[in-house]
Design a protein around this nucleic acid. Sequence first.
DNA 1: TCTAATTTGTGCGTATGTATG
DNA 2: GCATACATACGCACAAATTAG
Lengths: 332, 332
Amino acid sequence: MSIVSIKDNSGKPKYKQIIASIEEAIVSGALKKGDKLPSLNSIKLRHKVSRDTVFTAFNELRNRGIIQSVAGKGFYVASEDIMVNQKIFLLFDELNSFKEDLYNSFLAHLGDHIQVDIFFHHFNSSIFSKLIYDNIGDYSYYVIMPANLENTDKVIDKLPDDKVYILDQTHNELSKYPAIYQNFEKDIHSGLNDALKHIQNYERIILLFDKSKQPEGILTGFKIFCKENKIAHEVVDSLESRTPKSGEIYVIPDDRNLIKIIKSIREQGLVLANEIGIISYNDTLLKEIVEGGITTISTDFNEMGKRLAEMILKNENLKIENPNRLILRRSI
Amino acid sequence: MSIVSIKDNSGKPKYKQIIASIEEAIVSGALKKGDKLPSLNSIKLRHKVSRDTVFTAFNELRNRGIIQSVAGKGFYVASEDIMVNQKIFLLFDELNSFKEDLYNSFLAHLGDHIQVDIFFHHFNSSIFSKLIYDNIGDYSYYVIMPANLENTDKVIDKLPDDKVYILDQTHNELSKYPAIYQNFEKDIHSGLNDALKHIQNYERIILLFDKSKQPEGILTGFKIFCKENKIAHEVVDSLESRTPKSGEIYVIPDDRNLIKIIKSIREQGLVLANEIGIISYNDTLLKEIVEGGITTISTDFNEMGKRLAEMILKNENLKIENPNRLILRRSI
DNA sequence: TCTAATTTGTGCGTATGTATG
DNA sequence: GCATACATACGCACAAATTAG
């Protein structure tokens, strides 16, 4: 008795019949982990189907982690656990706390049966390329958080178009992929506008901006806001050689510098919100608590994770701007 | 122990596995410049591969200038100076903020040329097993954060003994592996003792303890401390149906509940440190800042990441208790 | 000097998976 | 579904270099 069975007139796609046959053989115990499957050619001859048809079936099973292939040898059963049927490749820039919310929300809305593997490119384009290159063919979906890196779109192009999702920020070169992203330029502009009355209580607004890590839209939006409202402003790339002074309000996109500046403010005996202001990027639970509450301009990472999960589960091809808002707290 | 190791079902081409084995042997010092490699035939017999497969591997290494051949004699190591991309498999329980410090410190002390891939088992033993099983043979080292899960040692046993490192907590079954871990029982006991004078200002101490996530040593150490000092105590697994009252001091091992209880304390108008106390586990930068400073019992995650990196780079086989201390701040 | 054994070097054939058009 | 070029793996045959006896 053959492991695969294909009916010509069943109305079902042949490759799905092959998948079902293999799954059944594994569930019934006829195929155990490590067993070799019949070769593409042998199935082609025995059942008079195209080699491609068999390959399509095997390929889907491989993407689901159920079988593995070894070039020059054959396909082998990798897992007897048919339920674990999808794996997602999730490529982040770096690990920081708001990603915790994003990741947890994504996972919660995907459901139990999908495995998500996280990788980090650390704003290094060769790591970015290597991670994608090394994992081509191994995952059902690829969720990628791009950055200001060169040539990344060429690598992404090696992945199947219908399996790629873009997260958090996007470029023109990536416009063919579904995406859920922040419109940084618009968001910081409208966020600062919503806080305009408070900002005008200060003499000068300072943006801390690391161009290798933060998206350029933040800088553009910030400058537009300042020009429109004729506010004295400055952009610095580090707090190292700077002591915060009374009359200044800082826009801080990352948490390490946020803590640094809060300490520095304390050391100098300045009064937050009175003499000096802070607006932070990316809301996390702790920012509700710190110093009586830090004002943030932030997208909703729970929502972002939820919508991303929905897009993938429903196979939607959408481009979604994730909502962003100013959360006014005592720090300004 | 043979220099080459080949796994039949690893999903990787055999000749590449041979190349990787040789590279590793050179990097580790098992093969020095001028040493003779095993002959094609001996590897063919020992590992039951084709002579050509071995030759393909040796040929590539020769083209890269790493080995040389002398017809009729054999292959010899020509250079110890090779760029090997080492990869490390890092298995965490779940994503939370103190892991940011640990991971960043680990990465910083490893240097640029080593790639670290993170995975999360989410306290689910089948995910734990699957992640390890799926990645056997793909990494130079496996760093594993175990948990209160059954049968995990059996899976870890499938990995090469000399490539496994245990992180953060350990058990008897894992005693053969090098490890850097916290001694939870001792640490919470001595941490609470150091804070004894403050704790005695409260009527009752409450430990929030989720037995599926926190290591049991925390519970044991807590109970011993309370008995020794005759302090009224309680262990609860959730804050859901509980409103903090004046006279209570809480030991909170996770950050979500920390925020929950701080909010709850505010809502009830209680004064932190005066009427109610908090001791948190795992120090992060933000805890210096929150509510004027949260007292923590914490290991030094920067140190942990640094020592782990050193152990791996120097191939040390040690069992290290990572230092832990009480950091006294205003919250008690 | 001859021979046998071992080892690298080379070429050919076949089977299998990979990728593309 | 077909055709094609390529990568991987295995096995066989024979030549050439080296070494040991």
